[in-house]
Write a protein that binds this DNA or RNA. Structure first.
Length: 561
DNA sequence: GGAAAGCGCCAC
DNA sequence: AAACGTGGCGCTTTCC
């Protein structure tokens, strides 16, 4: 059963059951939307699929009210996928935009979502309507109409089941994203502060460098013979030339090739300055919130990092985040990620996901045989007759479109041993070089290049064509890997046991999920992960021999993993 | 004085 | 060993 729902901006809303082929049920007005949703969700039998305009608008308030739903149809994300399929990525995809296109009316721009509008913001129960529908339009009618149209467009596709699955898991991902932002990644502020102080020295007043950085900067200036700001690439470039070692850039790997006492100082400065500016005390204050009452008594101070996830924020279907740099938590501060007392972190990490995906989608028998193994690259090395590291470089080069350096001779070997796999990515690259679009396994579509005629005619047209070929070459693999991760996430939401508030999936990044569960639920969580991964492989690739092994570990601290 | 570009590093 | 895909983001410099 599907139930369309809109909120009234004041805690209540309207619901309407959607029958398959039968006339829709009458509209139901409810004063307490969260209570109505909770009731329908637990009324016995299979829970409904909630049809709504935008998960980011509706679901955070439900989650704050303590309500979780199992399934939804996010009309906005669905519209983006369907527009993308027709290579119309740049067109607005809100409910209002979809409705306007149905009625040949001017299409409104998508609303801009400023930072922190997710669950990170302070509770503001059922915020004002953010609809892009024209004033006076019945929002529930519009939603029902757009939803019916979307289902029709899906069923008209060459592979409707795949797009239906993609829509379902994209929507489930949106639910998971809101829940993860709400629960947050457990983060100990005092551990983070201790790490920073050990590496950088005590926290400085604002505007000053921490002691260790200040000392390094002074040493650098002393070696050069005059004041140098190591944060300025231009000044570092001049300083290197001044000491007799001109370099083309100040990138670390370039400097590493230079033998001069200035180099280790600069490299050390870069490393520490990065930590200070990207994940230093300012980051900690901005992004980690202590739980109310979490710091009482002798216990540790419990905090939460709550990034704002952007589902579908990357063309390939990977997620982006808004603020906090959640996709790049550096190893040096991961020791601050600790389970609460009595709880554990369960991490599941898909190893070698992209080559396995390539084996599955291309149907290459030899690569699939290697991908049936726990360590794909080791098996590859045996095939190729080379060491593991070089076999790995060869395959990655094939997927990324690298042609120079070490990879060139390896590629020829790869092409001979895994012809179908190589042809799969080569074909995608050829399409891209010709200005065409490619699709993932479930039908997510690469954006069409901008004015292609102008691109080709440009002075560097060849370079641009090849760059677009590398993009489409990688897209077919990366976008399908992202789908695998989305299906896993959706399956995991269903398989996981109920946990107390704050438990469940708390972090997700490309091919890795982190759960936070009471210690006595750890074993059950590990079993749930195992069931979810089995379902994921079967749902996506049927009876493929390819395995997608997940490294699962249970621990107190993310740095241990 | 703020926006945008350029650089560089972090993650997968 | 170093130019090969997707991103976020902070700092400096340049532009208006």
């Amino acid at each position: 059963m599907r139930i369309a729902v809109v909120s009234d901006g004041d805690g209540g809303g309207w619901l309407r059951e959607l029958g398959d082929g039968t006339p829709p049920a009458p509209v139901r007005r409810v004063g307490d939307l969260a209570a109505a949703v909770r009731e329908a969700e637990h009324s016995g039998g299979q829970p409904p699929r909630w049809v709504w305009a935008d998960t980011e608008d509706l679901y955070p308030d439900l989650v704050r009210a303590g309500v979780r739903v199992s399934r939804c149809h996010d009309a906005s994300l669905t519209e983006a996928l369907l527009l993308g399929y027709r290579a119309r990525h740049t067109e607005p995809h809100s409910l209002g935009a979809a409705w306007a296109r149905l009625h040949d009316l001017p299409v409104p721009d998508d609303p801009v979502r400023p930072l922190g509008e997710g669950t990170a913001a302070q509770p503001a129960l059922f915020e004002a309507d953010r609809s892009t529908l024209p004033p006076g339009t019945d929002r529930l009618d519009a939603l029902v109409e757009v939803h019916a149209d979307q289902r029709g467009r899906i069923s008209g596709l060459p592979s409707p089941d795949r797009m239906a699955l993609l829509v379902a898991v994209e929507s489930a991902g949106a639910l998971a994203a809101v829940e993860m932002s709400h629960d947050g990644l457990p983060w100990r502020p005092e551990v983070h502060d201790r790490v920073l102080t050990e590496i950088l020295g005590p926290r400085p007043r604002s505007g000053q460098r921490p002691p260790v950085l200040a000392d390094l900067a002074a040493q650098i200036s002393e070696v050069v013979g005059h004041e140098v700001n190591p944060d300025s690439p231009a000044q570092v470039l001049r300083a290197m030339a001044w000491v007799g070692h001109p370099v083309a850039s100040t990138r670390s790997w370039v400097l590493e090739g230079v033998d001069h006492p200035l180099v280790p100082l600069l490299l050390r400065y870069k490393e520490l300055a990065r930590l200070y500016s990207a994940n230093g005390w300012a980051w900690l204050e901005t992004w980690v919130r202590e739980l109310p009452g979490g710091g009482t008594g002798d216990g540790p101070r419990l905090g939460r990092f709550r990034p704002d996830y952007v589902v579908g924020g990357v063309v390939s279907g990977r997620w982006a985040t808004r603020g906090g740099g959640a996709l790049q938590i550096p190893r040096s501060v991961r020791s601050a990620v600790r389970a609460d007392p009595g709880w554990v972190l369960v991490r599941a990490d898909a190893g070698q996901l992209e080559p396995r995906v390539l084996a599955a989608v291309s149907g290459d028998g030899a690569l699939a045989a290697a991908a049936a193994e726990e360590d794909l690259y080791a098996r590859l090395a045996a095939h190729v007759g080379d060491d593991r590291e070089r076999a790995k470089i060869g395959l990655l080069a094939a997927m990324y479109g690298q042609t120079s350096g070490d990879a060139a001779p390896l590629l020829a070997t790869m092409r001979r041993l895994y012809p179908h796999a190589l042809e799969y990515v080569d074909a995608a690259a050829r399409t891209g070089e010709g200005g065409g679009i490619v699709r993932s396994w479930l039908g997510r579509t690469s954006p069409a290049p901008g004015d292609w005629a102008a691109t080709v005619a440009a002075a560097d047209g060849d370079r641009r064509r090849r760059a677009h070929g590398r993009f489409t070459r990688n897209f077919v693999v990366q976008a399908t890997a992202a789908e695998w991760a989305l299906v896993l996430l959706a399956a995991l939401r269903q398989e996981l046991p109920e946990t107390p508030e704050g438990g469940g999936i708390v972090f997700f990044v490309h091919d890795e999920v982190v759960l936070h569960v009471p210690a006595d639920l750890a074993e059950e969580a590990v079993r749930a992960i195992d069931r979810a991964q089995t379902r994921t492989r079967r749902i996506l690739f049927g009876d493929t021999p390819v395995r997608f092994p997940l490294a699962v570990s249970v621990t107190d601290c993310y740095a241990d993993l």
